[in-house]
Design a protein around this nucleic acid. Structure first.
Lengths: 360, 360
DNA sequence: CTGAAAGCGCTTACAG
DNA sequence: CTGAAAGCGCTTACAG
């Protein structure tokens, strides 16, 4: 999805009043060329000059005219973005954020769609988009996780920013929520409802959330003085179909958990479906919570409690960062992570544990 | 104007030999300005001249440089697009197609997001985007249906193209599938599976598909020699929540239908959920089919049979049409409709009627 | 480290 | 109906 504010486009062209590079140059007391050099880092500029220019730019609120840049033959900044072909909710938000950023900053977006998500395919796609001219890459968490070896070893030739990556990856930039804290918060919410046996559907190792979301779950149990029962933790791919299979592991047992926290909404939804198949009532017999607050959460019955991450915002920030890294010449700044706030959304799929079931 | 003029000859920067308006002008034996006038319909041009120019354009496969156009102050073509805030699957596809078209043809996309879909809000949004400068509008079917009065009466000041509108609207252009035929095909498929009591969840009147999809359903029954039982037709909003309510009307009766065909996937999914709640098995006790083949269809259990329309393609074509209409000066061509092919996708939510239930 | 000048490919007054 | 010229706001050789 694109901008929530509604406008994908720029306002109608205002010619006369526009502030040009000439204006900036005059105010800063330099030539237009020097302004250009400062802005594009294209040639070394004396520090005092650079500061004067930047001050003028800021004071005048100057924005370069993209058409003129393009016509004059400037190298366009190209941002490569890998997208999954399936993950509809996530990718439309990611795409929206990325488009916002690229169109605001005058960069070009190059997307690659991936069908499977094998290591080789992801690596090939990343390399392909770099060869095709991308100056920086934005990798949604899953792909960053899959390529973590390559990323750590600097095998990708351009700056990489991971969006919603679920955990730190040394050697790249990232914008994400604190997955550990988010999982802790949701687990704590379930415990607060009276649940003592809380199952956890854990992502596979290739997802970095494998570690962080599980850690949050474990910490919440520990703080509540509950033992972590390893048989209540089921590792599974995060697709709906895999969730169907994983549901058996939770439900085919006499000492079923009273609540299950799944690492995404697709699998949570699958667990609800299988619970219904067995004649269990949700949330009366079983509470279920997911992660992502995808559109699916409101298109199932009962509606799903979930953890929301502001994906569009994360993608926008990641893309903005990728653009500035791509435009940098000279030394690159140190890698860092920006943490964005998450939200816990409780709906009808979770409820206080029925009286009789509460363990004393 | 040949290159002997010295200045031109020793141009410091010769980029790739892109074909410019100069080239076209030379080949056509006219000035660049005349080429520009022909291409933009900006001034009257003699027919012979126009033809010579167009031939050169075609022969050289000339495409105008958008950056130069913009810089030179050409009026940008702005296409307004109204989008629903909820309908995630549909809008991401619509948006994708619209972005494809606008970026390929150098137009600018202006989107407006609608929360509710009241007549007044939709009309206000359409007017707003026109006031903001849109030269043509692309309206997803629902909105075109809501505004049909205004559209028929020519109350919108710019050309309007409806995408997936579900039925003809006099006075505007449209790109859509044949909803009647699509509903006919799906109903016929259900009948072919042995079903004799096929329920139909019908859209509200404000959706134009209210008429066409119902007509296709009715025709299929008629051709199969089946009576249309009005009590098996339930009219409902197309949201998941409304589908939950509508499901009762189908299922709270002794002579339940053996199959239900819902006018979209959200409501079909709600019917499946309510069937499960009642302990009915899908498809063993009840077959369910939807319309749209949205991502939801693969994220429910069992997977949903549905009618697929190529939304991205439809949106792209609609946007292309809107762009050419916006760029036209002088008389506008007659309204027309382009019909795009649909696909029937059968999955596990539908199955041959169990032996015992087939009426002789 | 800094600047004057040419030019990117188009369109828009302005003249015929 | 058609064209010569100026100029949109940048960047890129080239020259200090």
């Amino acid at each position: 999805m694109l901008s929530e504010t509604g406008d994908l486009a720029k306002s109608p062209r205002r010619k006369s009043q526009a502030i040009t590079i000439e204006t900036v140059a005059r105010v800063a007391g330099v030539s237009a060329m020097t302004v250009s050099n400062v802005l594009n880092n294209s040639k070394p500029v004396r520090e005092a000059t650079r500061e004067a220019v930047m001050r003028a730019v800021r004071d005048l609120n100057y924005t370069p005219n993209l058409a003129a840049k393009a016509l004059a033959g400037a190298d366009t900044t190209r941002i490569g973005l890998l997208l999954s072909r399936d993950d509809f909710s996530f990718i439309s938000s990611v795409l929206g954020g990325a488009v916002e950023a690229t169109s605001a900053l005058g960069a070009q977006l190059m997307t690659r769609r991936l069908g499977h998500q094998s290591h080789d395919e992801v690596l090939a796609a990343a390399q392909d988009v770099v060869v095709a001219g991308a100056n920086a890459l934005v990798l949604p968490g899953l792909y960053a996780g899959i390529l973590q070896e390559e990323l750590r070893n600097g095998l990708i030739d351009v700056p990489v920013v991971a969006a919603s990556v679920g955990d730190e990856i040394e050697g790249i930039w990232s914008i994400r929520i604190d997955d550990e804290a988010a999982a802790y918060d949701m687990t704590t919410s379930l415990i607060a409802l009276g649940h003592r046996r809380v199952g956890f559907l854990r992502a596979e190792e290739k997802h970095l959330v494998h570690k962080t979301r599980f850690a949050g779950y474990a910490r919440a149990l520990a703080e509540a003085g509950l033992a972590l029962d390893p048989s209540l933790v089921v590792t599974s791919p995060l697709s709906f179909d895999s969730g169907i299979a994983a549901a058996d592991a939770f439900l085919d047992r006499t000492d079923r958990p009273t609540a299950i926290f799944a690492s995404n909404d697709d699998t949570a939804s699958a667990i609800v479906a299988m619970a219904h198949k067995r004649g269990l009532r949700v949330p009366d017999d079983l509470s279920v919570a997911g992660f992502d607050d995808s559109p699916l959460a409101l298109r199932m019955w009962p509606r799903l409690s979930s953890v929301r991450q502001p994906v569009t915002e994360i993608a926008r920030k990641a893309t903005e960062l990728a653009i500035s890294l791509a435009r940098l010449s000279g030394e690159t700044p140190a890698h860092r992570t920006d943490i964005i706030d998450h939200t816990i959304v409780m709906r009808e799929s979770t409820a206080p544990l029925a009286e009789g079931l509460v363990c004393a």
